Simulated scan of single mutants.
Amino acid sequence: MNMTSDIQAAFVRAQQDAQALPKKLGNDVMLRLYGLYKQGSGGDAGTERPGGFDFVGAAKYDAWDALRGKSTEDAQREYTELVRSLQAGS
């Protein structure tokens, strides 16, 4: 296995682990997880920011767009580290 596939495998495991996190997370943490997940799985955000009264959609878009330019591998690594720290209760 190479470094990239190790990071991707850890990212996939972290996605599964995130589903099992026991406690309610704050909005800031949830948005950080969302942004890192989207950047790690799809790259930069598109150009269409939700508008109108879609406040949740806009917040999610902004969290993702704030990571524009971050490499997929870096986003996957940060996502994995964040999930691990949440599991540890940090």
Rank of each mutant, 00 (worst) to 15 (best):
M1G: 11
M3F: 11
N27L: 06
G46N: 06
I7M: 02
D62Q: 13
L86W: 01
S5Y: 04
Q16N: 15
L67W: 07
Q8I: 03
P22T: 10
A18E: 08
A75R: 07
V29R: 01
A45V: 05
D65P: 01
S90V: 15
D62W: 07
D62M: 10
M3E: 15
R13E: 11
S90G: 15
E48P: 03
L25G: 04
S5W: 04
Q16H: 14
P50S: 12
D74P: 05
F55E: 13
D54A: 14
G43C: 09
A20R: 09
D6V: 03
M3T: 15
K60A: 07
L36N: 03
E81S: 13
L25Q: 04
E78F: 15
G42D: 11
T4H: 12
N2K: 10
Q15W: 01
L86H: 01
R49V: 09
A14W: 00
K38F: 01
E73P: 03
D74L: 09
G35V: 02
R13A: 08
K38I: 01
L36R: 03
Q39D: 11
A10F: 00
Y79W: 11
K38L: 07
Q19T: 10
S5K: 09
S85E: 14
A10E: 01
I7E: 01
Q15C: 06
L31F: 06
V83Y: 02
G52E: 14
L31A: 02
A88L: 14
N27V: 06
L33S: 00
Q39V: 07
K60H: 09
F11E: 00
V12S: 03
V56K: 14
K38P: 04
D28K: 12
V56I: 15
E73N: 11
L36Y: 03
M30E: 07
G51H: 09
M30Y: 00
T47P: 15
Q15A: 05
D28V: 06
V12M: 04
L82I: 14
W64E: 06
K23D: 10
L31H: 02
G52M: 13
S85D: 13
E81Y: 12
T72G: 01
A18C: 11
G69V: 05
L67K: 07
R13S: 09
G26H: 00
D44Q: 02
G42R: 10
I7C: 03
Y79I: 08
Q39P: 13
S71F: 04
G69C: 06
D74Q: 14
K38E: 06
E81V: 12
K70G: 01
R32L: 13
R68L: 01
E73G: 10
F53T: 15
F11R: 00
G57C: 12
S71C: 05
A9T: 04
A10Q: 01
G26N: 00
T4W: 06
D6P: 00
G51M: 13
G46A: 08
R84K: 14
G35H: 03
Q19D: 12
A45M: 04
R49T: 11
E78W: 15
G42A: 14
A20K: 08
E81T: 15
T72Q: 08
D74E: 14
T47W: 10
E73Q: 12
G35M: 03
Q87K: 13
F55R: 14
R68S: 08
K38A: 05
Y61P: 11
K70C: 03
